[in-house]
Design a protein around this nucleic acid. Structure first.
Length: 787
DNA sequence: GCTTCAACAGTACCT
DNA sequence: ACAGGTACTGTTGAAGCG
């Protein structure tokens, strides 16, 4: 019997001493299926020492009772041929231990791939793709299993991956919780889950609410609901780190088990910190928030607002410090219930905008859907590489600790300060990936100093002199060529589709996933944590990059194009189409890379600073780069003022009008008419509180939260305001949730927020800071008028 | 003992 | 827990001053 299924989740079980791979999927006809594959034997490799034959190692290894098979195989390591011994064994969990024993053998130099987990091993070796379609020959199982699916099958052969852009109809359940503690952060040991709000993608919404703070019925009702709806995907926001561990512990306190999965077990935290719910995909949307760099404070309401799910201004927002007071009051409790329901509605909305990307990323890099969000960028790239190089027999190097040694990066040209009219921004498209392709830069093509060059020749990087063989193509070249061409192909396909169609949505998500992996490839190459880290690989890419951009500048100037600015792979030049055309042509011929106008600014303003400017686009939009407007660590009021100044200055060319505007805003601040929220400054904690060498405002604010019983962790964004009083700035920082407007130091906001942000722009028009303060005479005028 | 100032710490941005 | 290059603010402690 043949089954077609889309792979949702994968896990393994050891039954009767035998490992089994469990593939959870959705079949073509919409049935939920579990396919059990008992045929896959885990293994790892041992590479013999110089002068030792692999056969000798095979002999030595046979003495271990746990070895089910050992054979010599041909593999590669950093592109070089190696004879290795592949060692199979029954128990996947013992592999690291077995590898250690083998490592100790006389003839063994190093073991490999003992750090590849069994289920990933299975996916890679069988070319099984998460969130992808497969066909498989199966039979009915001999025994009955107590699992929640329509059908259980036993595999008779390995699954065959089938290329398809179809996605099955997935059942999605979103949830959020509210926990109650009379003071400070709720603790699962003692504080109840008072509200659980659930929504499902069939349009239903439910709330489970505690009576008299007894949450056992709430938890049980939630479990029943999940069981009855039987979702394929469970989504939350912060659910990996907060909600699911809390619910799990809370159930334990009541002596029950949180059962949400398809086999009757508890959720458990696993690789990269994801919470696994067997048979379903548990997705924490927070793990995808990094994709939206424009959102500075990555909480649910901000992300929902940004993605157009629910406007912040139309939401009921309650700070966590205020949950208790809302829960305790019968009147305010209604608001809390509304807030919670809206949270889940936001989760569902965000899910609908992220899940296509998540599934595409999962199938592209080969990580299971519930892992791919929690895996850091470097690991996503790495799994994509592992998946690819398996096909060419490249052994996966061990991750090892290395000292950090810096290397030179890109060139940034000093900008020509002032306002420039009609400026074209030229860009090298995917510069580093294309450089790596063009010069065959790869871990497996690198020729170390002293090694004789191959007859087919080599490329030598400028400045740094690193050499890379021309032939055969390295795996970076193969991977990047594939990624670049696939993205081009998808993008041309998209042009013939309606943006509203399902196919468009899926393909667009796919090209985004491809883009993410492509763009991260250079960074991966220079990451000391990378398994295939070779510093010269990254160093050569930037060296070629520097030479390319420098040459481009020379060519531009030779053609009479004034270069206003440039950063890494971009050049800002006067928009003169014929010259630009010539430039593009010459660069293509001489350098072999493509440079294209990316956008044209009607007007663009530079100060003396690099990486900070503001351009006016033909459609009237402002493009603010690097300035306070786009920074998350300035008070909103200052950012708004600067943005308005930029608009006035670039559109109306009237610095005088801008100055008047600043006067008005400063007046409003001093009268405390500015909304309190616009005074909040947000900064991240980048380390534990006690590891800071100097005292800083956001750190002191965090300590105050801690004192109030709130847990603080690295990575949290602390929102604070500066209050009036004596002493250093850090002594006057207070978490905004604990502060009153009355105590705010408005002069700080005038002097240290508004003035610097405004003056940054207006100093270009010779406006002095003093001139930005509202004139006292204005007050007099007002008073005279009054009298 | 006070002010001044350069070095440093810290954060967030750009490509 | 993908790279290096850059701007900027506030803290710190030594230098400079009298």
């Amino acid at each position: 019997m043949k089954v077609s299924f889309w792979l949702l989740d994968i896990n393994y079980e050891v039954r009767n001493g035998k490992p089994e791979i469990w593939l959870w999927g959705i079949s073509k006809n919409g049935e939920r299926v579990l396919i059990i594959d008992q045929s896959f034997t885990p293994y790892f490799y041992a590479v013999p020492k110089e002068g030792v034959s692999p056969e000798t190692v095979v002999e030595q290894i046979r003495s271990f009772s746990w070895v089910s098979q050992a054979r010599t195989v041909k593999r590669r390591y950093f592109g070089k041929k190696v004879a290795a011994v592949q060692i199979f064994c029954r128990n996947p969990e013992k592999i690291p231990k077995y590898a250690k024993a083998v490592q100790k053998l006389d003839g063994v130099k190093e073991c490999f791939e003992d750090d590849i987990r069994y289920s990933m091993r299975y996916l890679i070796d069988n070319d099984v793709v998460p969130c992808g379609w497969h066909e498989i020959e199966v039979e009915e199982p001999r025994e009955k299993l107590d699992v929640k699916v329509d059908h259980v099958y036993v595999a008779k052969a390995s699954p065959k991956h089938v290329e398809s852009t179809l996605t099955p109809e997935l059942k999605i359940l979103g949830f959020s919780i509210i926990c109650y503690s009379s003071k400070g952060m709720p603790k699962p040991e003692k504080n109840p889950v008072v509200i659980i709000s659930v929504a499902t993608n069939d349009g239903r919404e439910r709330q489970f609410v505690a009576e008299s703070n007894d949450d056992k019925p709430v938890l049980e009702a939630f479990m029943r609901y999940v069981h009855d709806f039987d979702p394929d995907i469970i989504v939350g926001y912060g659910s990996n780190r907060q909600d699911l561990p809390y619910l799990t512990k809370r159930c334990q306190v009541h002596g029950i088990r949180l059962r949400l999965d398809r086999i009757g077990g508890e959720p458990h935290t696993s690789v990269y910190g994801h919470v696994s719910i067997t048979g379903r995909a548990n997705i924490d949307l927070y793990d995808f928030a990094d994709e939206f760099a424009e959102v500075k404070v990555k909480n649910l309401e901000n992300l929902a607002d940004y993605l157009g799910v629910m406007k912040r201004s139309e939401r009921t927002i309650i700070e966590d410090v205020d949950y208790a007071e809302h829960w305790e009051s019968p009147e305010k409790r209604k608001l809390l219930l509304k807030f919670s329901a809206e949270n889940t509605r936001c989760i569902m909305g965000i899910a609908s905008r992220i899940l296509d990307f998540a599934t595409q990323l999962s199938s592209l890099v080969g990580l299971p859907l519930d892992h791919v969000g929690t895996a850091a960028v470097g690991f996503r790239v790495e799994w994509f590489i592992i998946k690819h190089v398996h096909k060419i027999g490249e052994l996966v190097p061990k991750r090892r600790e290395r000292p950090y040694t810096p290397y030179a990066g890109a060139i940034v040209l000093p900008p020509k300060p002032g306002i420039h009219e009609n400026i074209a921004v030229l860009d090298f498209k995917s510069m580093y990936p294309n450089i790596m392709v063009a010069y065959n830069i790869s871990p497996d093509t690198y020729i170390p100093p002293g090694e004789p060059p191959p007859p087919s020749g080599f490329f030598e990087a400028p400045e740094v002199g690193h050499r890379f063989r021309k032939e055969p193509p390295g795996f970076y070249k193969e991977i990047l060529t594939y990624l670049i061409s696939v993205r081009d192909k998808i993008r041309s396909q998209l042009k013939s589709l309606s943006p509203k169609s399902v196919e468009y949505r899926v393909l667009d998500a796919r090209q985004k996933a491809v883009k993410v992996v492509t763009n991260a490839s250079y960074g991966y190459a220079g990451w000391i944590g990378a398994r295939w880290y070779i510093k010269p690989v990254a160093e050569a890419a930037t060296a070629w990059g520097r030479s390319i951009i420098s040459n481009a500048v020379k060519i531009a100037e030779k053609l009479g194009l004034t270069v206003i600015y440039g950063d890494t792979d971009s050049l800002f030049v006067k928009h003169e189409p014929e010259k630009i055309e010539k430039l593009s042509k010459e660069i293509g011929e001489k350098i072999g890379l493509e440079i294209k106008p990316d956008k044209i600014y009607t007007r663009v303003l530079f100060t003396e600073a690099k990486k900070r400017y503001c351009g006016l686009l033909p459609n009237g939009q402002l493009d603010v780069v690097g300035l306070e407007v786009v920074r998350g660590d300035w008070a909103t009021v200052a950012k708004k003022v600067q943005e308005k100044i930029l608009e006035i200055v670039l559109k109306e060319k009237s610095p005088r009008k801008a100055v008047e505007y600043v006067h008005r805003v400063i007046g409003e601040i001093r009268e405390k008419k500015t909304p309190f929220r616009e005074l909040v400054i947000w900064k991240s904690l980048t380390r534990p509180l006690d590891e800071y060498a100097v005292r800083a405002a956001h750190v002191e604010a965090a300590k105050l939260l801690l004192k109030e019983g709130w847990e603080i962790s690295t990575g949290d964004k602390i929102g604070y305001v500066i209050v009036a009083g004596e002493g250093k700035l850090y002594e006057r920082a207070k978490p905004y949730v604990l502060a009153n407007y009355d105590e705010v130091d408005t002069e700080y906001y005038v002097q240290k927020q508004i003035l610097p942000a405004a003056s940054r722009i207006l100093q270009m028009f010779n406006v002095k800071k003093e001139e930005l303060l509202p004139p006292k005479t204005a007050e007099k005028t007002k008073l005279t008028e009054f009298f």
